[in-house]
C-alpha cells in the first residue's frame, strides 16, 4: 500500500472527528485486507511523520490484518490467502477461489480521558 498517503488521510479524518473532542488522541485502530494490505513498519513510520505537531502526535497506531479466505479448487480445502505465496497449503495447487478482500478502514479513535 501507499503508506504515506494512507497516513495523511487518517490524520485528516481524525482532525475532522476531533473538532468536537477536547483531549489528545491516544490510540488509532485501522484495518486492512491482504491485497489492500499495509506494511506495519512503513505504516508506523509514515504515521509518526504525518502526526507530528498535531493532536495525534504520540498516539499508538494499531493495524489489524484481516485474512482473505480462499477455497482450493483441487482439494476443496479452505485456507488464508497469502499474496506472496498463493498456493494451497494442503495440496500445493494454486487454483483457488478468493473471497472478498477487506478494505482499508479507519475503525476507532481513542481520546485521552479528563
Amino acid at each position: 500500500m501507499h503508506e504515506s498517503a494512507v497516513a495523511h488521510d487518517i490524520v485528516n479524518s481524525i482532525l475532522a472527528e476531533a473538532k468536537n473532542q477536547p483531549g489528545k488522541v491516544t490510540r488509532v485502530l485501522v484495518s486492512c485486507g491482504q491485497i489492500n494490505a499495509l506494511n506495519d513498519e512503513v505504516m508506523q513510520f509514515a504515521f509518526e511523520a504525518a502526526t507530528a505537531d498535531t493532536i495525534c502526535q504520540g498516539a499508538k497506531l494499531e493495524i489489524k490484518h484481516i485474512p482473505l479466505k480462499a477455497t482450493c479448487k483441487n482439494c476443496s480445502g479452505e485456507f488464508e490467502f497469502d499474496l506472496y505465496n498463493p498456493n494451497c497449503p494442503k495440496c500445493g495447487k494454486s487454483d483457488c477461489t478468493l473471497g472478498e478482500d477487506a478494505p482499508l478502514l479507519l475503525e476507532e479513535i481513542e481520546f485521552e480521558e479528563d
Partner: peptide, 13 residues
Amino acid sequence: MKLKINKKILAKN
C-alpha cells in the same frame, strides 16, 4: 473515550 469511526481510508480517491 473511544469513538467508532469505520470510515474507508483513501475514500476521496
